[in-house]
Simulated scan of single mutants.
Amino acid sequence: MPTTTGSDDRSHDDDQHAAAREDQLTTAPKSTEDDAKPRIDVSDAGSGRKRLDIRDDANARPGKPDTERRDGGGE
């Protein structure tokens, strides 16, 4: 009987989480595949701290939605 290591279990859990996230973000009536793209990057900042950065290519970004959207304005 094959055994798995803790990292294999985490990898499987990460894959399941990513699939569930994509399903959730693409089930709305007007959603697209772009809605499920990552919007943040998480990196190790040392000493057990994590750094969160908004991705430059993220469609949804913090700020005033009517003036700072990538597509130039509100809907």
Rank of each mutant, 00 (worst) to 15 (best):
D66F: 01
S31F: 04
G74E: 00
A45F: 03
D57M: 02
T3E: 15
K50I: 12
D34M: 07
S43W: 10
D56I: 00
K50E: 14
R39M: 13
T5L: 02
Q24W: 10
D57N: 07
R55I: 01
D44P: 03
A18P: 07
K37F: 05
A20P: 05
I40V: 15
D34N: 10
A20K: 06
S7I: 14
S47C: 06
E75A: 09
G48L: 10
D15L: 07
T32W: 05
A45N: 07
P2C: 05
D71C: 14
A20Y: 02
H12G: 01
A19L: 06
T4V: 15
R69Q: 12
I40Y: 15
D9E: 11
S11D: 09
D14L: 11
Q16T: 08
G63F: 01
T26C: 09
T67K: 06
L25E: 02
A18M: 12
K50W: 10
R61A: 02
H17F: 11
K50P: 03
R49S: 09
H12S: 09
D8N: 14
N59M: 05
K37T: 09
D14V: 05
S7T: 09
P38Y: 00
E22N: 08
T5V: 05
D35K: 02
A19N: 08
Q24K: 04
K30C: 14
A19H: 04
D41Q: 14
D13E: 13
R69T: 09
S11P: 00
Q24A: 12
E68N: 08
Q16D: 04
D8Q: 15
D53W: 00
S31P: 01
R55Q: 06
E75C: 11
E33T: 03
R49W: 13
A45R: 02
K30M: 13
N59L: 09
E75Q: 09
T26I: 01
I40M: 10
D57R: 00
D41P: 08
R49I: 08
D9H: 08
R69S: 14
I40G: 06
K50N: 12
A28W: 05
R70F: 00
D13W: 11
D9F: 04
L25A: 04
G46F: 06
R55L: 07
P38V: 07
Q16H: 02
K37C: 08
R70A: 06
A60Q: 09
D41K: 15
D8H: 08
A60V: 08
